[in-house]
Amino acid sequence: MEMSGIGLLSGTRNILARDLTLAGRRITDVLTTLFFFVIVVSLFPLGVGPEMNTLRMIAPGILWVAALLATMLSLGRLFTADYIDGTLEQMLLSPQPLSLIVLGKVAAHWLVTGAPLVLMSPLLGLQFGLGGAALGVLMLTLLIGTPVLSLVGAMGAALTLGLRGGGALISLLVLPLYIPVLIFGAGAVEAVASGLEAGAHLSLLGALLVLALCFGPWVTAAALRISLE
C-alpha cells in the first residue's frame, strides 16, 4: 500500500478536519460545555459564601473539578454519533491505523471542549481573587491537563459505547483515573498562589500527558474494536 510517513497521519488529519467542520455546524454543543463550566464554578461562591480569602484558597480545586466535570459531560458525544450512523464501523474497517484515527477524534474533542475551558479559566480565576502568577499557572496546567482528560476519557467513552445508562457509567470509570491530573493540576496553582515553586507539579503533569498520548489512542482503539464486535 502507498503509505508514506506523511500519509500515515492523513487519517488523523482527515477526521480532525471533519470533526471540526461538524462542531462548527453544531456550535451549540460546544457552547453547552463551556456554559456548564462557567455555571458550576459560579455556584461555589453561592454555596460557600462570598468571603474572598476562603474563595481564593479553594479556587484552584473548584476550577479543576469543574473542568473535570465539563469534560466528562462532553465525553458521551465523542463516539456516539459516529456509532449510530455507521461511520465508526467504517473507521474500524479503514486501512489506516485505528489509533491514529482515534487521535484525530480526541484532538478535535480537545480543541472543541478543552481549549475553550483553558481560555475561559483566567476570567473565572479573577472572580475568585487569584493573582497574576496563579492565573498564568492555572492556564498552563489546564493547557497540559485537559488533553489528558480527553485522552483518558476517550477510553471510557469507547468502553461504554452504546450501553444503557452510559453517561453515569462513564463517570464511574473515568473519574477515578482523573485523580492524578486533578492533584497535580490544582496542586500547581495552589503552590504558586502561596508563593512556592510549581516546577515539579508541572513536570509530573507533563509526564502524564506523554503517557496518555503514547497509550491512550491505542487502548481506545482496542476498546472500540471490543465494543463494536
Binding site: M155, L159, L173, I179, P180, V219, A223
Partner: peptide
C-alpha cells in the same frame, strides 16, 4: 471490555497511589 478496564486500572493504580501520597 471489563478485562481491558482492569488492565487500565492496574496501570493507573501506582500512579494514583503515588499522586495521593504526594
Amino acid at each position: 471490555a471489563s478485562g481491558l478496564l482492569a488492565l487500565i486500572g492496574a496501570v493507573n493504580v501506582p500512579i494514583i497511589y503515588f499522586s495521593v501520597q504526594w
